[in-house]
Design a protein around this nucleic acid. Structure first.
Lengths: 190, 190
DNA sequence: TTTTCATTCCTTAATTAATTAGTTTTCAAA
DNA sequence: TTTGAAAACTAATTAATTAAGGAATGAAAA
């Protein structure tokens, strides 16, 4: 629609320099409109997930992020437990926030916090039996909501969606690192 | 793993009552472990998207949410503009927060806010030419990051992922309403 | 009509949530 | 040892929400 300069990476196509994505696979007739619609759908989906987690939390007397932190500890705890920093990185929260919220969960008896004997700076977080029991109370209502939430995912597509979620998570972690690098570089050249 | 009661909806299977999802399509050998792993992948992906938006924002002198609100106005503005409430609902922000942030964007000259002549309570938000120009400045770095971010999406799968994102957005909106209903009901019976 | 009531949209004020900045302790390397 | 870095925590600040309000609309009753 605008002028038509030659893009070094796409010599055969005249692409709009204002496009938000350049890979040909993600353009339709040289337009990123479909791609952007997808991004906004994902954005709205993520916002809805957060709303629903807030509801899950409220149902068992927690805030949305407390609930999120609780299930993330359970997911990552493994044999001995998980560190505060790993939780913060997974959820993109600041470490101090994880500290205050986990301290609150410990006070509620839902999470155990003990020092890592091999490195006394670190801490092992685990979900207590009481925490597991509380999450089990939530299960019936959670089933009903999750069944509806993922209704578009069928037996035929479940494995494919699972793989796509895993791959997108990995690529998004690389992209986050790249974005940090590129925008910091942009800062310095100013 | 625990006891094995009969679930009314799954008479032929003995399902763990602590499962977070009940649809057979989403269980593997009666376990929700794969489903939960997918949910945590999506959670991490959403967190990374937010980090990247914060970087995009910083690159053009905005906060992450200011950038997000700006592109959401552009996406939803249509012919005349979009209301504050629509923006708040799309992003699951509170309306007052949208007010203060859009006021700031207006002060920066990136967004225009004018009253809706057919309903003076409402407001029309649009992105100004200056706002468009600022977003265009971002495009080159954005292309590089988006290309990497969606690397797992190929020409073969783009349409399918687009459709899945659209469908999940729709089902998540229904699930958010259901969660509101179910957890409020849970409140009253207490 | 017109008046009243309930609702909606946006905004301002007060409160809570989450971050950045700064300390302490520990570990690992020189 | 000592230096540097890293994990978690505390304090101070900023971000975002809930609570409260003013103004406009629409519908129902007088």
């Amino acid at each position: 629609m605008k002028n038509s300069p030659v893009d070094l990476h796409n010599l055969e196509l005249d692409l709009d320099p204002g496009l938000t994505v350049s890979r040909e696979d993600l353009l339709v007739d040289g337009s990123d409109a479909e791609f952007r619609a997808m991004v906004h759908d994902l954005l709205a989906f993520a916002a809805r997930l957060e709303q629903i987690r807030a509801r899950f939390g409220r149902f068992i007397g927690l805030s949305g992020v407390q609930y999120t932190i609780l299930i993330t500890i359970r997911q990552l705890q493994g044999e001995n437990g998980v560190g505060a920093k790993a939780i913060a990185e997974h959820l993109a929260f600041s470490p101090p926030f994880v500290t205050t919220e986990t301290t609150r969960l410990v006070r509620l008896g839902l999470v155990a916090k003990r020092p890592n004997p091999e490195d006394l700076r670190r801490v092992y977080l685990t979900v207590t039996d009481k925490g597991i029991a509380l999450l089990t109370e939530l299960a019936p209502v959670q089933q009903e909501i999750n069944d509806l939430l993922f209704e578009p995912v069928t037996g035929d597509t479940f494995e494919m969606v699972r793989r796509m979620a895993r791959d997108l998570r990995a690529s998004s972690e690389r992209a986050a690192l790249l974005s940090e690098y590129l925008t910091d570089a942009g800062k310095e050249e100013r």
